[in-house]
Nucleic acid binder design. Sequence first.
DNA 1: TGTTCCCGCCACATG
DNA 2: CATGTGGCGGGAACA
Length: 385
Amino acid sequence: MASLSSASTLPESSSSRHHTYSRKQKSLGLLCSNFLSLYNRDDISSIGLDDAASRLGVERRRIYDIVNVLESVGVLARKAKNQYSWKGFGAIPRALQQLKDEGLRENFNSLDGSDFAKASIFNIRVSDDEDDDERFSGPTTGSQTDKSNTSLNLKSSASSKTENRREKSLALLTQNFVKLFVCSSADVISLDEAAKLLLGDAHNSSIMRTKVRRLYDIANVLSSMNLIEKTHTTDTRKPAFRWLGLRGKAESGSTHNLALNESRKRSFGADVTNISFKRNKVDSSIGGQIKHARSAHEVDVSVLEEDSKDTSKSYQFGPFAPVTVARVGDSGNSNPRRFHDWESLASTYRPQYQNQALKDLFSHYMEAWKSWYSEVAGKKPIQIS
DNA sequence: TGTTCCCGCCACATG
DNA sequence: CATGTGGCGGGAACA
C-alpha cells in the first residue's frame, strides 16, 4: 500500500462508467510477458517471488503459475525457497532437447493416426526434475550444494505423497504438453486432443474440465514466449495449438524471425504494474488517485520497429518482426489466415509512448529477444523436428 | 450459449 | 506453529 503505482491502464475511455473489468489485462500471458521483460537481464542472478509479485502488482499465487511453467522450459531454475535463478531464453533449446529424449524414452509418440491409439501417457514416470549443469554463478556465499541427490533412484517404489502431488502439478503438465510437440512431428494439436492425451482420456467430466483449465493457463504463458500459438484445426473450428518452437533456426544465418506477442488480441496491456480492479463488482474503493497516464491504451505495440536511423541494414528485424518472412517451406499450411500486414501497420501508426517506463520496458524486451535469437543461432543448430 | 480462464480458498509442504 | 507452495474449481468475461 505504501507505494502507489503510477499509471493505470484502463481501457481508453474518458468517462468510463464503472471501470469495466477486463480479463485480458490480467491474463497470465500478459503477466508472463511483463515478468520476462522485467527480469531478463544479464545481471539478474536471482529472482525473489515476493519482489516479482509486488513489482508486477499481482498476488503471489500468480507468480507461482508463471514460474512453474517457465521452469519447465528451462528459463528459470529453482534455487531456494522464494528464490529462482534466471537461466535465460538461451536455456530453452537444451531444455527442449532434454524433454524430447526424455519423452521418446517414454511412449510419447502416440500420434493420433487413428483412434484406438490409446495414449499411455498418463502415468508417465517422471524422472524428477534436475537440470543439467547447474554451474552458473555460485551464489557466492558458502557452497550450499543442492542436495539433489539424483542418481540411484531406489526410492521410487513408495511414491511419496510428495510425489503424488507433483504428479498433478502444473509443471509436469507443462512438460508433458511440450513433449507432445517435441516428440511428434505434428505441429498442431487440438485442445481436446491434448487434454485427452495428457490424462488418460478422462471419462470423468469434472477432472477433465479442471485439466483443461490448466492447459489454458499453460498455453497462455507458452504463447507469450512464442513457443506456441493459438489456432484452430484446419478444417474444424476446434481450438488448437501450433508449436512454434525455435522458428527459423534451421539455417544459420538469414532470416530468423518471429512475431512477438500474440496476434492482435491480448496484446500488451500497458502497464507492468497490474493494479486493476477486481473482477467482482467491488466497491470502487480505490481511494487513491491514480494518475491516469492515458498511456498507450492497448495498441498493438508489435510494430515498434525501432530506429530508422540505424545503420544500413545490418540486422534489423526487431523481435517484433513480422511474419511476412520466409516461412521456410515449413508445412503447406494452406490456412487462409489473415496475415497482418505489419509493415503497413508500422508505417501507419508509429507507437508513441508517453510513458517512459513503458518504452523502457519494451526496449529491454526487444533486446532480450535479440540476444536470445543470436544465442540460438550462434549455438549449434539444435534441431527439433 | 459454450469457451476461455482469473481469482483466491484452503490443503499440503517446508522452515 | 508460521509461512511458502500450489491444487482445484466456481463463476465471470469473452466469443
